[in-house]
């Protein structure tokens, strides 16, 4: 019983961490029409960079996130006009064209990581990573708590930004009614660029979070991607709180599955769930 409760608790924490990795993708899919299959690959790249900073300079991953997220935001600003805008504009199905583009990017990143850091798995070990922390009577891993807090802060921060700031409202306006937005003077093109850059910036936070929890190799982005896609599809693209709720659910499934079933079953459940939901409700459960 005690083990079950603990795995439930760590499942919820895992869900928070995954919410951080998923929320940017949800934003990009729902509000910039970008189906970004490279989202977790970008996050993984940041995971490796954080690992590099930790092992060479002793910089704590929490600090590294503060450096990497703005950098990735800038990278997103640079990627939009060069690669993504031409892929989205004047295309019959921007989601399909961006998914092919980003699959290519993901392959490039995976192999670049493998070239630089070899295919061997890495583990980020910080002073707190294996420390047992007792929260409300449950004992959980320190790095899991840190990653969960990062993810939760990110999701809540984004929710606040989108609903309580003027730019956030403009972002929603463009997503809901692009023509209407242009008619009140919103430069939809700039807004899409901002959304995309935000999404890429958050990929850094989510990616470092996951890299703190799991041992990771260059191909890890793939399993992360499928999990994150499941979360986004269940939560509904563009729905920030929906992403959080669905991530908590997926975290619980992963936490319980990890405790009760062998590893192979875990991926079977994950893929099977994603497949079923995509077949039945491809545009989200809540839409």
């Amino acid at each position: 019983m005690g083990m079950l409760v603990t795995s439930l608790a760590s499942g919820l924490l895992l869900g928070c961490a995954y919410a951080g990795a998923a929320v940017g993708l949800s934003l990009a899919m729902g509000m910039a029409r970008v189906f970004n299959l490279a989202h977790t690959a970008l996050g993984l790249t940041c995971g490796y960079l954080a690992y590099f900073l930790l092992t060479t300079a002793g910089i704590d991953p929490m600090v590294a996130v503060g450096l990497l997220a703005p950098l990735m935001f800038l990278a997103g600003l640079a990627l939009w006009p060069t690669l993504f805008r031409p892929t989205v504009r004047g295309v019959a199905d921007p989601a399909l064209s961006t998914s092919i583009l980003t699959l290519g990017l993901a392959i490039v990143l995976e192999n670049a990581l493998s070239k630089v850091w070899t295919p061997n798995p890495r583990i980020m070990s910080t002073p707190y990573s294996n420390q047992a922390i007792t929260l409300f009577g449950f004992t959980v891993q320190g790095s899991l708590v840190v990653a969960a807090v990062l993810g939760l802060l990110l999701v809540l921060g984004l929710h606040w930004f989108l609903n309580r700031t003027f730019i956030g409202l403009a972002i929603q306006a463009v997503a809901q009614e692009p023509d209407g937005a242009r008619l009140v003077g919103i430069r939809a093109e700039l807004v899409s660029m901002l959304v995309f850059a935000l999404s890429v910036g958050t990929a850094a936070i989510g990616g470092v979070g996951l890299a703190m929890i799991y041992s990771f190799g260059p191909a890890s982005y793939f399993d992360w991607l499928l999990t994150v896609l499941l979360i986004v599809v269940v939560g509904g693209a563009g729905a920030i709180l929906g992403t959080l709720i669905s991530a908590l659910g997926v975290g619980l499934v992963l936490g319980l599955g990890g405790a009760l079933l062998p590893q192979a079953w875990n991926s079977l459940i994950l893929f099977g769930l994603l497949l079923t939901i995509l077949l039945l409700r491809p545009y989200g459960l809540f839409k």
């Binding site: 892929t87 064209s97 583009l101 290519g104 993901a106 392959i107 192999n111 070239k115």
Partner: peptide, 21 residues
């Protein structure tokens, strides 16, 4: 050069393809 570089080249081709449908 190496398998990874070949895969990177393939990935870049995939990126390129989007601009030349």
């Amino acid at each position: 050069i190496g398998e990874e570089i070949a895969r990177i080249a393939y990935g870049l081709c995939l990126v390129l393809v989007v601009f030349f449908p």
